[in-house]
Amino acid sequence: MEIGVPKEIKDQEFRVGLSPNSVHVLNEQGHTVFVQSGAGTGAGFSDEDYQQAGAEVVATANEVWSREMVVKVKEPLPAEYDLIQKDQILFTYLHLAAARTLTERLIQSGVNAIAYETVEFNNIRPLLTPMSIIAGRLSVQFGARYLERQQGGRGVLLGGVPGVRPGRVVILGGGVVGTEAARMAVGMGARVQIFDISLDQLAYLETLFGSRVELIYSSTPEIHRAVPDADLLIGAVLVPGRRPPILVPRSLVTQMRPGSVIVDVAVDQGGCIETLHPTSHTEPTYIDEGVLHYGVPNMPGAVPWTATQALNNSTLPYVLKLASFGMAALKKDKALAEGLNVTQNRLVHPAVQQVFPDLA
């Protein structure tokens, strides 16, 4: 199969769909990979690296989008809509619940769109997990940075110092993102609270953190008690294929101390905090109700060397199946079949259908 790897055009998105190592494996199995020149530069991979791995490096996006399958990192942007081909396989993150226009264009195009984030088996999302780990860790790393006074924060050191209490981190959601955020926050010495609606998950988190993290069953009264005292509030709520509920309304944000920081990792699915909207790596933050908001939807793009390799470790087995069997691979792999969002001019993923019932 001919596989295209375009250069990502989302703001400061330096990850790339396939690493040179992945290209080498595909090449060994008889597939031809076309990589747009410069696609891997931001992640530390040169055009020469790809050529040595067996790829054909091409100059334009048209030359990669004209292939049987396109492997990306982020969802197509408007400038790419007209490049999408009928009956082509598009394999990438899509997050359609927060992107009606993209959903409509994918349906119109006749593409077979398979989303990394909805590939699933036994409630495990293997292609979402590596980026969730990175985003969870970065949420605290960035949060700590923006708490600095020079960055607009209230000047709090999360770990505190002897004689001064540490900062308080409140995490909404105890899944992969929330767990990794807690690891970082605990490592820094912060006081940490995690809220989740799964008692089983809270019990599991107790085995990880013991008394170092306060684990609380998520309810509106408990969230309303905790948020005003948070120095760093992290949204880590995942509802697969759908928008998460708003857990923190504007009225609650107004009760936070000026210069506190909110990082909502769920922003790519619509977010769980009312005052937070998507931002970019170029302009990552804004102030609303006196609180600094960070809403970059492609956070792992900040560490593309690490993120590209972590993503490829998970995606490559599925790319190989699609390259070898085409859409028939979905009949051979139930997890991959769960990833199918759009095919034959129809929206087919049940969770996304619930968001856009008129498009189903």
Rank of each mutant, 00 (worst) to 15 (best):
S198Q: 03
N123P: 03
L232P: 05
E2G: 02
A115C: 00
A115I: 02
V227G: 07
V140K: 12
L102G: 07
A59N: 13
V73S: 05
V16N: 00
N341L: 05
V213C: 04
A135D: 01
K332F: 03
R191T: 15
V177A: 14
R100I: 07
V319P: 02
L172F: 06
E206N: 14
A113D: 08
T32L: 01
P317S: 12
F14Y: 15
I114N: 02
T275C: 05
G153W: 13
R125K: 13
P162N: 08
V23P: 04
M256P: 04
Q151N: 12
D231I: 11
P6I: 04
V57F: 01
K331Y: 09
M69D: 03
V227F: 06
G178A: 00
R212D: 14
V176E: 02
Y318H: 04
E148S: 11
I9T: 15
K334F: 11
S314R: 09
V58N: 03
T118G: 03
G143H: 02
G110M: 04
T279Q: 06
G30M: 06
A335P: 01
F195K: 07
A329R: 12
G270Q: 01
M131P: 04
E28A: 13
G152S: 03
T179L: 02
L158F: 10
N313D: 03
W65C: 07
V16D: 03
P357F: 00
E289S: 15
S19K: 00
E222S: 14
I133R: 10
A144R: 09
Y50W: 01
K7N: 08
I134Q: 05
L158M: 08
V161E: 05
G143C: 06
V265Y: 12
S139G: 09
I9W: 00
